[in-house]
Write a protein that binds this DNA or RNA. Sequence first.
DNA 1: CGCAACTAATACGTAGACGTACTAATGTTA
DNA 2: TAACATTAGTACGTCTACGTATTAGTTGCG
Lengths: 148, 148
Amino acid sequence: MPVSETMAMRLRRAYMTMHRYAQQHFASFGVTADQYVLLSLLAEQDEIRQQDLAARAYSDPNTIAAMLSLLEEKKLLRRKRDKSDGRAKLVCLTALGHRLHEKLIRSVEPIHAEMERAVGADRQALFASLWQIESTLANLQLKSSVDQ
Amino acid sequence: MPVSETMAMRLRRAYMTMHRYAQQHFASFGVTADQYVLLSLLAEQDEIRQQDLAARAYSDPNTIAAMLSLLEEKKLLRRKRDKSDGRAKLVCLTALGHRLHEKLIRSVEPIHAEMERAVGADRQALFASLWQIESTLANLQLKSSVDQ
DNA sequence: CGCAACTAATACGTAGACGTACTAATGTTA
DNA sequence: TAACATTAGTACGTCTACGTATTAGTTGCG
């Protein structure tokens, strides 16, 4: 089978197209698509540890730390030591960060709408398949590492 | 809606899980998941321009150039000037590259099988939805740039 | 209590995504 | 043919993904 017709490449194309589109969209606000995800997660839950943020953003602690440094320089968030655990830091949005997030969340509504419209009634089937892929491969990974 | 339940994050999780799994898999062969894609494309069509390679890998010329440099250092491929167009370079696998690709393609069969099994009968519906997302967002991008 | 195992964050390195600027070759058109 | 726009590839910078190593704080246990 041609590479371009494999499930892997189809998934890549869908994800990359979405990511590129989002990247371009958010550029006019001076943030990246991934930074928007972080801001949204922080708006959803304040005072969150970097580890938790990494898990929710489906990223990793190293990447999150780098992204937070950039967002902190831009005064969109701050980090304070967790009093109950001196190793951890709690991240929260600044007022500026909240205001930006409000603007951003309004700006993405049309995009979400377009994506929903694109998949239409197959939405639930798509979600089920995506979840199947995710859970199957995540478990494979787990299994082989537990085998050691 | 919680960020984690958006279509965008579901798509991200599926793609990133697959990519991480592939990354780990190919690490034992000394290549990355994305390098495997390039090797496969070259095995599919020899003497291909970097631009075409970028399009087929759904990447971009800058990234491809960097990746090709690494693969060229590893003697897996070489680039020669295109006689019919002095700007272009034609990329092709070395014998070493072909041999490695043969090994790699055998090693990924179980992964493709697992992914097919994971989505099962919903395979065609999934492909249709992924294509809907891709084409919808790609066209949005096109439209707004043509509007300028 | 004290020390070993674990954990959160950081530091640093490599790879990939992609923007912008540049060079060299090609095409176009007056 | 000369001036000009396009195009292929390179160079370089920023951001993200993620591996490995290190530091500092926490937990568990003899």
